[in-house]
Design a binder for these strands. Structure first.
Lengths: 204, 204, 204, 204
DNA sequence: TATGAATGAGATTTCATTCAT
DNA sequence: AATGAATGAAATCTCATTCAT
């Protein structure tokens, strides 16, 4: 029998995909420890048994998600714009921050859960630490030309910390501000830090 | 009858204190969800039964610790130095950051656990959000005189986010830097942001 | 494919059934409060975990049993014979009392436990009260034609109370009498009460 | 110092008395198994330690209460009026049933708890069985002269069962009737059973 | 490839009882 | 005679994982 291959994915690949999606949703809602495999399989509408055909454990599912996110993060970090020394190019940073916001909105939950998992499990901690250092390195490379007199690595550290936690506060609802405002806050702070001037808000 | 050594604390108060201490240690080591009451009572060297004389559940113990930490945080925030408009007073901020570091070193675990608990439990989330906004408000009050042309609340948001996450990265080991360096990074970044200049590191 | 022995019950249904049976036995032996889930699962030869797949708690298992018993009780009550006005038909009451005895022997434990549960839990109390009133109503309907001059509902109340507690005394061993004798006592008492005469015992 | 002995009871006796009172109340409200020593000492407003100065265990307290009740029961049973053969003396039975009602109202809880305790503990069971047989014996002695042709012991069994459970249904709220009506129902049923006639209700 | 019933180790919580004061 | 903090055995319940179908 000839089946028109409408879908490029095998059944197994689709099941795996649904589990990854469900995992993202459940880890987002409940965090790593509080998330139960039961929640994941109910969300994905598959059985417990099937779960273990694709992932060897709850941790394994998380690892898979974390790898996905880490890859996207690394890619995004590599695309952080190089600051020209003359203080030009604010639009590029602004646009990059928006892309970061998109990613964080989708994957912030996994990043949070990472933090949570990190405490007890050293493996994630190491991977996470490495990712953070890589991320900082990329940002440092971007700002170095603009301000050679400040320690780019140190400045980048502060910038990364600020970006991550500001988005977290935004997502968690602690900050009562619009997303545009958040992006502006961050852009302004980065400019102030790197160029020593006060970049004014873009959105009226 | 004269009592030789009148203890200032009753037996019960001492036991409660030991449980709070043990709780801090265990939440620090394992995080909120992974922490077991069993770990807490073993650390405090008391029995399971006694634990439930003082706290109705693991959540209840956490709540008590969180209130303690929140109080200390609020106090510290209220003592953030006011920036004189002439760019003086770096020493005061530096000293304040050191005090924050002390507090974070002691209580960071509870703050992390707070984040973790926040996801599923709305009560903590609300309290946490309120605390963050208060904290930001105090910092904003401190920097407002120095740079009236930037939105102090927005700047304070970025600063608080940066401070918190930078210390977190330091404590979690993702940053391979000394504590002095971390304090310097933050001080420099805050100065750059507020005064628009590059405050150079104190430690060579 | 032809399945050799198609079981009418799924595996799950059989497990649930075994738990209900085990519950009846354990509540019978130890009463409601003293019964431990551990006893039930050991009797049913299944694991603790499985128990909680079928019942959310010990109370829940009891509820299920109570519903079963209440249904049987209600059915039996509905079949109480109508007394012909001429004092005929002792055999029918005698036979009905035997059926009640059978039910009480099987389910008396649950009825006792009901009483026990009733004290603290209002839900069971209400259900139990309703069941008793229904039961009394059916008996009242049966005796009304025989003795229209006595308040059938009041007489039925006394009859039901007497039946229940007499069987209880018999089951609990307080009465040192054979079951046949117990049935005779009750039949005689009911006849005496309803027809105003002394129905003599059947067993010499 | 001379103390006017206003109270004939020592402090210890008063404490013991308060524990007995509290025990009655708590067993009444929660039943034997669900009653916690904590409830008893809180009700009596004494400490856990003191409880164990007077009673060696929760069961011991119950035993003491049960003995009190059993004694009162036995006394009351001994005062059941003798039925004259001519069908006179309804007033005496009516009055006796009222006294039983008083006792049951005060001590019914202990009687219920007895039933509950009986299941697991054989000692109480035996004592309870003996009490019931004694009780039945006294009632049998009372009705024997009235109706020599019926087996007085069997009739008494039915009467006792009926009385006990009817009051129970009344106390537990399953019966929605006034106490006077309950007494009347029982009196009527006893008369009908013993004299073979329909004794009509006393209360209009 | 999929199912879902079953498992059992381990977590939380309760409460009768003891003991130092 | 009284206190109440502390105990610990035992009970309830959860959930990641396995396994027979």
């Amino acid at each position: 029998m000839v089946v028109a291959s409408e879908s490029a994915l095998t059944r197994g690949e689709r099941t795996r995909g649904r589990l990854l999606e469900a995992g993202t949703a459940v880890f987002a809602e409940r965090g790593f420890h509080a998330a139960r495999v039961d929640d994941v399989v109910k969300t994905a509408r598959i059985s417990h048994g099937t779960f273990y055909l694709y992932f060897s454990s709850k941790e394994d599912l998380f690892r898979a998600l974390a790898v996905e996110v880490a890859t996207e993060m690394a890619t995004l970090a590599g695309e952080f714009p190089t600051f020209p020394p003359d203080g030009q190019g604010p639009a590029a940073v602004h646009e990059w921050l928006c892309r970061f916001a998109d990613l964080y909105e989708r994957a912030g939950a996994v990043i949070q859960a990472w933090t949570e998992a990190e405490i007890s499990d050293s493996e994630f901690g190491h991977v996470g630490g490495k990712l953070v250092r890589e991320f900082i390195g990329h940002i440092a490379a971007g700002i170095r030309p603009a301000a050679p007199d400040l320690d780019a690595l140190q400045a980048a550290t502060a910038i990364v910390a600020m970006i991550e936690r500001t988005y977290y506060l935004y997502i968690s609802g602690s900050l009562r501000a619009d997303r545009d405002v958040v992006v502006d806050i961050l852009a302004a702070a980065i400019y102030a830090g790197v160029y020593g001037g006060h970049a004014r808000s873009k959105t009226p």
